[in-house]
Design a protein around this nucleic acid. Structure first.
Length: 197
DNA sequence: CATAGGATCGCCT
DNA sequence: GGCGATCCTATGT
């Protein structure tokens, strides 16, 4: 089942980040279909969150995407190399987003291996936000695409998330502080990271 | 216009 | 466990 707009427009981004664990992130890009179960996510809580790009209402050409309706892809370049994939949540003008940090590859592993420049994809691969985008073929030029109103045309780059009712062992769901946001002061301590071990 | 730095990764030791 | 890659973005002059 394709996750609908109502899933993303909820105004509690931390809850959405938790709910995304165990959902299946899919992409059809450059004619290659790939998918993976989301195993790690982080919430970025809008203008009050110092770790967020939209902190203090910062609104630029890049962050403009975060102010859109929940269910929009926000992808940006990090360290000049990595495209990091986020899902915008909440309503228009409330710039919240969830960073997808890790997936467990499900379908299209040959395509993933091709994109990673390897022969095969191991069971542990898909860990790290830069690697998620690499395996799924997501590029920062895809920022702004809707992941709820997905085009039918297979030529178009398409990204969406499905609920396949996969069973999650909630005892193995860990919560902790986010990675790489030490500059955010007290907000760096917030338990906004979710990991399925 | 110029420049510093980043929600990372992989290779090197 | 340390560092270099690599380039867009934000910010300041």
């Amino acid at each position: 089942m394709l996750l609908q707009k109502e899933f993303y427009t909820r105004q509690d981004v931390v809850q959405v980040a938790r709910d995304l664990i165990g959902k299946v992130l899919c992409s059809s890009i450059d004619g290659i279909y790939t998918s993976g179960m989301i195993t790690e996510s982080e919430a970025y809580a809008g203008i009050c969150d110092k770790a967020s790009h939209a902190w203090n209402g910062r609104r630029t050409t890049r962050t403009e995407i975060m102010f859109r309706i929940g269910g929009t892809a926000y992808v940006y370049l990090c360290y000049g190399i990595h495209s990091l994939f986020n899902v915008v949540t909440s309503v228009v003008d409330d710039p919240q987003a969830v960073l997808i940090r890790s997936i467990q590859p499900l379908e299209g592993k040959e395509g993933m291996a091709f994109r990673a420049g390897k022969n095969t994809i191991g069971i542990k691969e898909g860990s790290g936000p830069g690697y998620v985008s690499k395996l799924l073929g997501i590029h920062f030029s895809h920022s702004g695409l809707s992941i709820t109103d997905v085009p039918a045309d297979p030529i178009e780059p398409r990204i969406w998330i499905e609920d396949r009712k996969l069973k999650i062992d909630h005892k193995r769901l860990r919560t902790g502080p986010r990675v790489g946001v030490a500059y955010a002061g007290a907000d760096a301590m917030l338990p906004y990271r979710f990991v399925l071990e």
